[in-house]
């Protein structure tokens, strides 16, 4: 028996390694990845952080422009709210009651766009209040969802990941569907399951629905680039993302103060059924 093993040791080793690899691959889940990454990534993240800070320096001009643009947009919004709220203010609304989201600023330390399952690493982690399942936004739209955190870093499932799905809607008509990536082009995503009675124009705005507690409602995602009929009565829209993932530098992690409250009441419904 032993002689047999030694004689065919190469093929046995080969089979052993392949079986080991495949079992890791097939059982590999988000959870497993999260665990592995939390062990190895702190080391690589430090190096990636240096590379990124160097690259950021090269892109200062673009970053400045996008920040200025966001600033202008926020100022406009602020003006709009201030002009509207004069009446409401007098009736002294408790402003903290309306406060639902808080934002944590983070740098993108590592980011991939060319794999099938892309992930982003941020330089904020558990210590700064980032928790798994929080949403991540850039100034140009949604980016992904936090998968796992270490003390100072967080791994984010990028929107450009075959496993990523989020509900999104047409701003004009309110019809909603499921937004996902087909693994081909980092500039486009597909919004499927839009009923055919929805009137669609090229250039229509796509935004988030707020059905989940991950993203706030009405965050801009992109515009309709083209659409086609998808088996039966549904449209599939090709959405051109506003967010350029290849140039992602700064993002915000969103925490929802009412997350637990909403989830508790929703789980109460599913328990009754």
């Amino acid at each position: 028996m032993l002689r047999f093993l030694i004689k065919y040791q190469v093929i046995f080793l080969f089979l052993l390694f392949e079986v080991l690899s495949f079992s890791l691959l097939v059982n590999g889940s988000y959870f497993q990845r999260a665990k592995v990454v939390s062990y190895t990534s702190d080391m690589t993240n430090v190096i990636n952080g240096h590379i990124t800070s160097f690259l950021q320096y090269l892109h200062l001009k673009e970053i400045n422009a996008s920040l200025a643009e966001e600033n202008a947009r926020l100022k406009n919004q602020l003006d709009w709210y201030l002009s509207k709220d004069t009446l409401v203010k007098k009736s002294s609304i408790d402003s903290t009651r309306g406060l639902r989201y808080s934002y944590i600023m983070a740098d993108v330390v590592n980011n991939s766009t060319s794999k099938q399952h892309n992930y982003i690493t941020l330089n904020r982690g558990r210590g700064q209040g980032v928790r798994p399942e929080m949403g991540v936004l850039s100034s140009d739209g949604i980016v992904g969802v936090v998968l796992s955190t270490s003390k100072n870093y967080a791994t984010v499932v990028s929107m450009l990941n075959l496993n990523f799905k989020v509900s999104a809607r047409l701003k004009r008509s309110g019809y909603f569907g499921s937004l996902s990536w087909d693994g081909k082009d980092a500039r486009f995503m597909n919004l499927s399951d839009i009923p055919q009675q929805a009137k669609i124009k090229i250039g229509d705005t796509i935004e988030t629905t707020g059905y989940s507690t991950i993203f706030p409602e009405g965050v801009f995602i992109g515009v309709v680039d083209s659409y086609k009929v998808q088996g039966g009565n549904f449209f599939q829209l090709k959405v051109r993302l506003k967010c350029d993932f290849k140039r992602l530098r700064y993002v915000h992690v969103i925490s929802d103060f009412r997350k637990t409250e909403k989830e508790t009441i929703e789980s109460a419904i599913s328990n009754e059924e």
């Binding site: 390694f17 392949e18 080991l20 690899s21 495949f22 079992s23 890791l24 691959l25 097939v26 590999g28 497993q32 990845r33 592995v36 990454v37 190895t40 990534s41 690589t44 399952h117 992930y119 791994t155």
Partner: peptide
């Protein structure tokens, strides 16, 4: 695989 968090992919 360990560095990129894709267990089993490159090793296979």
């Amino acid at each position: 695989d360990l560095l990129s968090g894709t267990l089993g992919l490159h090793s296979a």
